[in-house]
Write a protein that binds this DNA or RNA. Structure first.
Length: 140
RNA sequence: UGAGUCAGCCAGAUAAUCGCUGCUUUAUCGUUGUACUUUCGGGUAUACGGGUAAAGGGGAGGAAAGUCCGGGCUCCACAGGGCAGGGUGCCAGCUAACGGCUGGGGGGCGCAAGCCUACGACAAGUGCAGCAGAGAGGAGACCGCCAACUUCGGUUGGUAAGGGUGAAAGGGUGCGGUAAGAGCGCACCGGGCCACUGGUAACAGUUGGUUGCAAGGUAAACUCCACCCGGAGCAAGACCAAAUAGGGUUCCUUAUGGUGUGGCCCACAUCGGAACCGGGUAGGUUGCUUGAGCUUAAGAGUGAUUUUAAGCCUAGACGAAUGAUUAUCCACGACAGAACCCGGCUUAUAGGCUGUCUCAGAAA
RNA sequence: CGGCGUUUAGCGCAGCUUGGUAGCGCACUUGGUUUGGGUCCAAGGGGUCGCAGGUUCAAAUCCUGCAACGCCGA
């Protein structure tokens, strides 16, 4: 039987924990989330949440996202190595259903874990990336 | 039955699995204090705090929201009084207090039940009223009406009934009266003042007397009057307390020393250890939930509220718990998440339920 | 969580104290100057005064409620 508990040792507790990760982290992102991560010296992963009031206006929605993120992390943490993760959100997250949030987060855990492997090198950007950005700006 | 009105209640339910949090009980681990014992290694007992595990029971709201008022609590300031500044504003009461609530009065809306109402004073003083209009406040003659004069164009005087302007034009209707008019006179209506009566009062009156009616609006304009208000806020405040941060005192040691400034001497600055002492950053603990508390019954009061008795303990987190998934059911689930605590107000809200009263219709 | 401020034309700001006409600069349009452009000169257009109520004859301005944006306090 796997251990699915989620005690305080699995969380980032103080501002100094967070500031360590903000300094040159590995990244993984999609339309609604940004994950930052770094390896730690412990034998388990840890999770920290930053749900900005600017991004999600209502307290009920902020609580919902935090609970779902913790729940999903709890169920998937045995698949992760010893890394510290900070989850940040972007605009529009509060419009997603619980089901969509679970699906997106499960993908992102795997992605960020991969990128924290010691030998990992980021893929080169596709050539048309710069182009797309320019056309987007021009259309605005 | 329909339409409305007021008051109150509920805020998906059940089950399974996996979690979070603090409480109680039990077990266990190591540590600290105390006592006993000792072969000085330790051992035993007990207490409180701590870690781990198991079991049990608890775990967001009617608005937890906005932060618009009021109070508790904490720190700071403070002899007393006044000014300034801010707030409130019909009367009486309730309350810890209030800008809240209850009851009553005046005014407005509604057929009604009922709802709304910053509602003191402009006769203490000052100010404001653009444009229009003759005139905007103890007024006024533009047109009109009347009289006199007239060169027949008008001029002078009287006049507030009519027209016109404006948001607002100095009681209303009728009769008398007059050159034409006018509270000029009279009747009725309305208003002012003084009594009387009722009411604690605001205020009211088929009451009596008196007054031709006189200086109208605006105080969410300055102001006056009455009453109230010290400032900050739990990120308040209190306690413990790392650093290889740093301050003071004493003692020891060094020193004819090292380093820096300088060409050099001189000179100046700085450099060690121990003990004690406060101040205090990171961090931790506390404040932190038993309270103007809730429920029931009886009593007082029209009511807000209050008295007495009995019973109950009902979130207390701190990167911040109160959840996720699945299944079944139905009315298919709105607004929305405690952060020191209470009393209000305001704003958001799917629907559902209960009762009061009113109006309309039908039947008896 | 607590404390405080701002909202007026496309942009940046006056006007609010003491209520009646919303103004300034840049930008925009048109014309002139120039061979042409810029500069310069002249004229012009453009504003639900954040939203909703109230007071008033009349509200950007006074009062009340709401919203958005921003600042401060570990």
């Amino acid at each position: 039987m796997e251990d699915f508990r989620f005690g305080r040792e699995l969380r980032l507790l103080t501002p100094s924990h967070y500031s360590r990760i903000f300094n040159e982290p590995a990244r993984a992102a999609n339309q609604h989330f940004t994950l930052l991560a770094k390896r730690n010296d412990l034998d388990h992963p840890r999770l920290g949440l930053t749900i900005a009031k600017k991004r999600v206006k209502k307290a009920v929605q902020r609580n919902r996202i935090k609970r779902l993120a913790r729940e999903n992390f709890r169920l998937n943490r045995h698949k992760l190595d010893n890394i510290d993760i900070v989850l940040m959100v972007k605009n529009g997250v509060d419009e997603l259903s619980n089901e969509e949030l679970h699906a997106q987060l499960t993908k992102l855990w795997r992605k960020i874990n991969e990128r924290c492997q010691p030998g990992y090198k980021p893929k080169p950007r596709p050539n048309n990336w710069q182009k797309n950005k320019n056309t987007k700006k021009a259309s605005n």
